[in-house]
Amino acid sequence: MLDDRARMEAAKKEKVEQILAEFQLQEEDLKKVMRRMQKEMDRGLRLETHEEASVKMLPTYVRSTPEGSEVGDFLSLDLGGTNFRVMLVKVGEGEEGQWSVKTKHQMYSIPEDAMTGTAEMLFDYISECISDFLDKHQMKHKKLPLGFTFSFPVRHEDIDKGILLNWTKGFKASGAEGNNVVGLLRDAIKRRGDFEMDVVAMVNDTVATMISCYYEDHQCEVGMIVGTGCNACYMEEMQNVELVEGDEGRMCVNTEWGAFGDSGELDEFLLEYDRLVDESSANPGQQLYEKLIGGKYMGELVRLVLLRLVDENLLFHGEASEQLRTRGAFETRFVSQVESDTGDRKQIYNILSTLGLRPSTTDCDIVRRACESVSTRAAHMCSAGLAGVINRMRESRSEDVMRITVGVDGSVYKLHPSFKERFHASVRRLTPSCEITFIESEEGSGRGAALVSAVACKKACMLGQ
């Protein structure tokens, strides 16, 4: 009897593995994704193909990295998701002549009506938060230079001027797309009239992360975010950046690689679950690469896999709870928690219980395998993109072996128990001629924006502006 049951459990697990095998990517698959990513990057950089390229390769006008001589107080704003952060950054000489960066910050959550109302409502709310922060720190009387981390696709015309191309991540505030974001912020500050600010720089969160990590390690020339969304930036040779005049030196390019796949480059790798996630998203047909990796989508992918296993009578005796059938019910943090389970399955059992399920031991094991399959594919897909960037940098610099540091931020990278190990191992397999160091950014977005502002202020002083 026991043997029969054991055989049935083994057969069930084997069927589960057959279904989950769809998520496995072979090294040849990853090399294919990497080569296609490089081709799209090239198209994004070139003037004649930029418009139709899915990977936009947006110039950021960040050319210099901090040298350690900029000092002063800077205000930093960070808008990239449902939370908005205001930070005071003091850049100065530390002990023994070292450079020191001290920060104080406060988080504000953005109400739904500000995210989806008008641009005026959104930026009025942001300036209200700045006003509140300055009151708390008794700094209303000071006109501070301000660095703005704005983590949406922007076409820069200068370091302090950028046109919002399109909202992502659930934002829909009308009247912002096609307009200068810094102008919208300046107008809102003017409307309030109770404080003055000098907006000197606007950067993407990947750029802010790279600059913040450069402060720790001067070989950091790539910034990457794996959180709600997924994106990367890197220092490109100016001669390859056709959208900006000049051939000397390097400029940081914001790849906006989340949109890779929007022209069909990933079609052969998309599964039924991916198509369902895409169809029910706020932007169907867009940001397809990001939807395979980002935390906004990972939990939902797992939920759809679990429903398939229920329908195949391989999980929960073929019956799903009402909660499990509800879109968004299986949160991405559950994926991390399930994979963090120590082996007694308590954590998995508790999560499934909150979803109205009474799982068996085998159910718990199957749910864990589903989570591992989805998150491992995410790590491997992400590795193909980064390997594409790094191999490109090595080739354009004609280096036999390139040493490089990548600064990384984002909740999936930082909080998932195995993502970074799987990701690092896969990147290294795909970049055999590179020695890569990964560092995690601390308060990256805010500190990085302030350091970019410090560079901009120093330049302005040198130019006598």
Rank of each mutant, 00 (worst) to 15 (best):
G444I: 13
V452W: 09
H156I: 10
K102W: 11
G385F: 07
V200F: 05
L463E: 11
L324P: 00
H141N: 04
V427P: 00
C233Q: 00
E96V: 08
T118M: 04
F148Q: 07
I110L: 11
A119D: 08
G80L: 14
L30A: 07
P432L: 09
L122D: 12
A460H: 02
L430F: 07
F195V: 04
G223Y: 00
G170P: 14
C364A: 03
Q219D: 15
I130M: 10
E40T: 07
C230F: 13
Y273M: 08
E157V: 10
P111A: 03
R403A: 09
D42E: 09
A425S: 15
G285V: 08
E440Y: 11
D3C: 08
F330I: 06
E177F: 11
E339I: 01
C382L: 10
D132C: 06
V335F: 06
G229A: 14
F133I: 04
M87H: 09
R63G: 00
I211S: 00
L314Y: 07
S100L: 09
L164G: 13
C213A: 01
A282S: 15
M393G: 10
Q26I: 13
D363V: 01
A119N: 11
T362C: 05
G448N: 13
T116C: 06
V253M: 03
N179G: 08
L355Y: 06
E312Y: 14
R5M: 08
V452T: 12
M37L: 02
K296H: 07
E442G: 12
N83F: 10
L146G: 12
V367L: 05
C213I: 13
G448S: 10
L266G: 01
L292A: 12
K346N: 07
T103E: 01
D267W: 07
S433M: 09
E96Y: 15
E120D: 10
R308P: 01
V241S: 01
Y273V: 07
G246T: 09
C213E: 01
E67L: 10
C371R: 00
I130D: 00
E196T: 07
A378W: 13
P111C: 09
R333C: 13
T255I: 15
V207L: 10
N166I: 09
S321G: 07
N166V: 09
V310T: 11
C371Y: 02
G295C: 14
A173I: 03
G464D: 14
P111I: 09
I130H: 02
V62H: 02
V200Q: 03
T209Q: 03
R155S: 15
G294V: 07
M8K: 13
R368Y: 04
I436F: 11
R192F: 11
A456V: 10
M393V: 13
S131Y: 05
A379L: 09
E268S: 11
H424I: 09
A10H: 15
F195P: 14
S54W: 04
G407V: 08
V226T: 02
G299W: 03
F195I: 06
K140G: 06
R429T: 15
M197Y: 08
S281L: 11
I163S: 12
D73R: 00
L185V: 05
A454P: 08
S69R: 10
I348H: 05
K172S: 05
D132S: 06
G80A: 08
A6D: 04
M202K: 02
D341R: 01
G92F: 08
M107V: 08
E372F: 08
R428N: 14
L451Y: 09
V253E: 00
R429H: 15
G410E: 12
S263I: 02
E96K: 13
M235I: 11
C230R: 03
E177W: 09
L415K: 09
C252G: 03
V222R: 00
G147A: 09
D158A: 12
R36H: 06
G448M: 13
R403Y: 08
A10K: 13
R46N: 09
Q98Y: 06
N313V: 09
R422Y: 11
V374N: 01
G258R: 15
N240L: 08
Y108R: 08
N180L: 13
L58D: 12
G147W: 02
F133A: 01
L386K: 01
G68Q: 05
S263F: 07
M139F: 14
K296P: 15
F84M: 14
C364V: 06
G162W: 13
E290Q: 09
G44I: 00
A460C: 07
V200H: 01
W257K: 01
S353E: 05
K56V: 08
T82V: 09
T342N: 03
L386H: 05
A329W: 13
V427A: 06
Q106R: 03
A10W: 11
V33M: 05
V455Y: 05
I126C: 07
T168L: 11
V200W: 01
R429Y: 14
H141W: 14
L430N: 11
A454C: 13
S418Q: 14
T431N: 06
D198W: 00
T342V: 03
H50A: 08
E372H: 07
D311K: 13
C457M: 12
P432R: 09
A208G: 05
T149D: 07
E96W: 09
K161S: 11
I293N: 07
K56N: 11
T103D: 03
D311P: 15
L88I: 04
K420T: 06
N83Y: 11
R36C: 05
L430W: 09
A425E: 08
A6M: 10
L20W: 14
Y61F: 06
D124C: 06
L144K: 04
I348F: 01
L324I: 07
N254F: 02
E242M: 01
K458S: 12
Q347L: 03
H141T: 03
T168V: 12
M139C: 05
C461D: 10
Q98W: 08
Q138C: 11
G464M: 15
I390N: 01
V86F: 07
F171K: 15
T342E: 04
F438H: 03
P111F: 06
G175A: 02
P66G: 14
K32T: 04
M34R: 05
G264V: 07
C364L: 05
E435G: 07
D198N: 01
T49S: 08
A259V: 09
G464H: 12
Y214C: 05
V305G: 01
D267K: 06
N391Q: 09
V389E: 01
K459I: 05
I110C: 12
A387E: 00
V222P: 00
Q106H: 04
Y214F: 05
E248M: 03
K190Y: 15
P417C: 07
S336L: 07
G446T: 15
R447K: 08
K140T: 06
K142C: 11
Y215W: 01
M402I: 09
E290V: 12
S336Y: 11
S64A: 12
F171E: 15
G285R: 14
V367F: 04
E300K: 02
H156G: 13
S418W: 15
Q98S: 11
A454L: 14
S418M: 07
V200N: 07
K102N: 11
N391K: 13
D198V: 00
R36E: 01
S64W: 15
Y108N: 14
G229F: 11
A208V: 04
D198H: 01
M197P: 15
Y289M: 15
S127A: 10
L301W: 04
G446M: 13
C230W: 05
G410W: 09
D78Q: 11
A201P: 00
S280R: 09
T376W: 05
G356D: 09
H137E: 14
M8R: 13
D187K: 00
S321K: 13
L185R: 01
K291A: 15
A378T: 11
E279W: 03
R392L: 13
G446Q: 14
F148M: 13
V203N: 00
D3Y: 03
E440P: 06
V389N: 02
R397V: 08
A387C: 08
G117M: 07
V253W: 00
I348D: 04
L164F: 14
Y297S: 10
T116L: 09
G183H: 03
I366N: 03
L307D: 03
F330V: 09
T405M: 02
E245V: 02
H317K: 01
E279D: 13
L77F: 07
R369Y: 02
N283V: 05
R250F: 12
I366S: 03
G72W: 00
